[in-house]
């Protein structure tokens, strides 16, 4: 896939003490595509998005690999230029709408400041753009909301604002990091609907980080399954749900509760599968070290 907009090649990262966080992760994101990054806690799914945005925690260092954005390897650029490239092309929808907005500032400036300060828009343009976007994400009375403080709005409203803010500069790519985990199911459905609508209308590529296979099946066209920092399977959505190729993916799917299935015991991920993936990863690590 040479037309991929974002290409990650063999990206590895580790903690100071050498604990691997990502192990030779490769993935493609085509323009306008929605790709799911799925895994359990500690699988490294959020770290991929952070690596692309250049916002990895200080304790984590990228050791090898490439992140290609439009024919330019970000990892070879100085941090300041990397930030600038990414800032113009990508945006983030964060997990927790409660902490992602500054509680002591009004909503309006929190949306417009990025446009004015980083992208050099005129303030009046940014203001108009923000009002349009708030209307687009179905926020009633945008003028009033622009003047409101975050605590005056519900969790769902705040997540809508963060979505509006992410689309504000018409980025080519948005990284959504568990955007509905903190929300109720009913609100989650509305927010997912909104994200999908916005994504289609603006033709934005979306990297969708989640632990929920149900959510993936509703939002993504393709997905990568991660375990312990490694992609164990990358495939399109229909072949995945028709029969995952990897034993771990299959076990994960079997452990996901479905209300349509009759009452009875769930199938937890068997220890043998966990042992098998870990063995595979250990073998892979030895291979990687030997080859390098």
């Amino acid at each position: 896939m040479s037309n991929a907009f974002l290409k990650i090649r063999n990206l590895s990262a580790q903690l100071h003490d050498g604990t691997p966080i990502l192990r030779a992760v490769s993935l493609n994101l085509n323009p306008g595509e929605v790709h799911g990054l799925v895994g359990e806690s500690g699988a490294g799914k959020s770290m991929i998005g952070k690596a692309v945005l250049g916002t990895l925690p200080h304790a984590i260092k990228i050791t090898s690999g490439e992140i290609w954005l439009d024919g330019e390897n970000l990892l070879t650029l100085p941090t300041a230029i990397w930030r600038k490239r990414i800032g113009a092309r990508a945006a983030l929808i964060p997990q927790d709408p409660l902490t992602a907005l500054n509680p002591s500032r009004r909503i309006g400036p929190q949306i417009t400041n990025r446009l004015v300060d980083i992208l050099g828009w005129r303030r009046a343009d940014a203001q108009t753009r923000a009002l349009d976007l708030l209307a687009e994400v179905h926020i009633p009375d945008p003028e009033r909301v622009m003047r409101a403080y975050p605590h005056e709005l519900s969790g769902g409203m705040r997540q809508r604002i963060l979505i509006a803010s992410a689309f504000a500069a018409e980025p080519d790519m948005i990284i959504a990091d568990e955007p509905t985990t903190a929300l109720d199911v009913v609100v989650q459905k509305q927010i997912l609907h909104l994200i999908r609508d916005m994504q289609q209308r603006h033709g934005t590529a979306l990297l969708f980080v989640t632990h929920d296979l149900g959510v993936v099946s509703k939002t993504c066209q393709s997905l990568s399954i991660l375990y312990a920092g490694r992609v164990v399977e990358e495939t399109d959505i229909h072949s995945f749900f028709n029969g995952p190729a990897h034993a771990y993916s299959a076990a994960l799917l079997a452990a996901t509760p479905k209300y349509t299935a009759p009452t009875g015991s769930l199938k937890p991920v068997p220890q043998s599968v966990i042992d098998a993936v870990q063995g595979e990863i250990a073998a892979f690590d030895r291979l990687g070290r030997g080859g390098a």
Partner: peptide
């Protein structure tokens, strides 16, 4: 409850569950 939910809110809750199935008509 699942076969014949009486309350509007129950129906809404059931409809909001994303099944791990890309063919489910959901939105």
């Amino acid at each position: 409850l699942f076969e014949a939910p009486l309350a509007e809110y129950t129906r809404e809750l059931i409809a909001a569950i994303p099944l791990p199935d890309p063919d489910q008509v959901w939105f």
